[in-house]
Design a protein around this nucleic acid. Sequence first.
DNA 1: TAACTATATTAACAGTGTTAATAATAAATA
DNA 2: TATTTATTATTAACACTGTTAATATAGTTA
Lengths: 202, 202
Amino acid sequence: MGIIEKRAKHKEEFRREILDSAREVFINDGYDGFSMRKLAEKIDYSPTTIYLYFKNKDDLLFAICEEFFANFFAELNHIRSVFRDPVETLRQAFLYLMNFGLKNPNQYKLIFFTKSVYGTREELVEQVSMARNTYFVFKEIVQDCINAGKLRKIEVDVIVDTLSMASHGVIAKNIHCANFSKERSDVAAHTLVDILLRGLQK
Amino acid sequence: MGIIEKRAKHKEEFRREILDSAREVFINDGYDGFSMRKLAEKIDYSPTTIYLYFKNKDDLLFAICEEFFANFFAELNHIRSVFRDPVETLRQAFLYLMNFGLKNPNQYKLIFFTKSVYGTREELVEQVSMARNTYFVFKEIVQDCINAGKLRKIEVDVIVDTLSMASHGVIAKNIHCANFSKERSDVAAHTLVDILLRGLQK
DNA sequence: TAACTATATTAACAGTGTTAATAATAAATA
DNA sequence: TATTTATTATTAACACTGTTAATATAGTTA
């Protein structure tokens, strides 16, 4: 494809193409394995062209993260509208995140373990982002359980922290133990969920 | 220091010096931030000299990991000899790992999250290593609780998996949430331990 | 003294993220 | 229509990276 054909593309459309290719490379090769030159070759452009559409490597990652959180946010709202029991809602919300991680460990790692793309907690809460929205709705799901008097007397923020810790741990273990079979991983993960909700409830 | 003085050093002693400096660089700058050239400058040798004492970058990391597991192994045996109640022994064993991670998140990350230095679970169990020894003694601590009839009917390997998941999660969260205050981190972590042991016991 | 071994060095290869300068085309204006 | 301007793409370059090959030097032994 020559330079003339390349110019025919529309800006937004091309940005999407770059982002989709970038996600593939990020997920397949990890944050370190990803390279601007590799992505450039994949989309058949020079490496510097990417810089016209994204500030840098981390800007690409940020865009990918926001897309994930947009989906997660929508799913949490859906779960909330479907389940009536607050504890069951919490369980399903947690399971969704964990199962996403088990099915897409590389993407989970990319979003949660690679870099602190959203800065500090204060910065996350101050700046508008899908990550912020997701954080708030998850917190509300926990608060619903507390309001219904279902949980032991533990600060809502602490519960949110412990649950995200647990989810992170499931995926971290899954990634670290190279030959952790899918079945074994699932068994341990779901056992952990049971233990957690058992230990949390009155 | 000229080439003549450098030659006076003894091999084993020098290997130690390199390893200690390498640990510092690895912990301060992370796995990616570490570079052979950086380490070489620190010890005032050329980068290639390091290759006479260690096979490569990952060989340095392996040596650092083995040192950690040697300490962890010794500590687990000590805890086991001090506490009588098996559940309390398990709690202390778990707390030791978790608190190490909270105090040394970068080193914990280096050992558990960076690379699968010990390969698959099968490879870990087959090859002699301090990591293997540590794995076995931790499993025995859990088995003692089961033998004493203190825990719910859950496979010992599954319990070990869930506990290591939890510990990994605490540290992963601690690292990811940039401005997670030390206090907040400690509260969530210790709450998680309570929830876990509560959910595990009969 | 000559040969050999151990230890250290420099130079090089192929790769990285990113910036600066430049070319070329499309669009807008005189 | 001719000319200027804006947009988009390019190449070249900088300072890094892990690692290997070839080379030089010092110490030990025959």
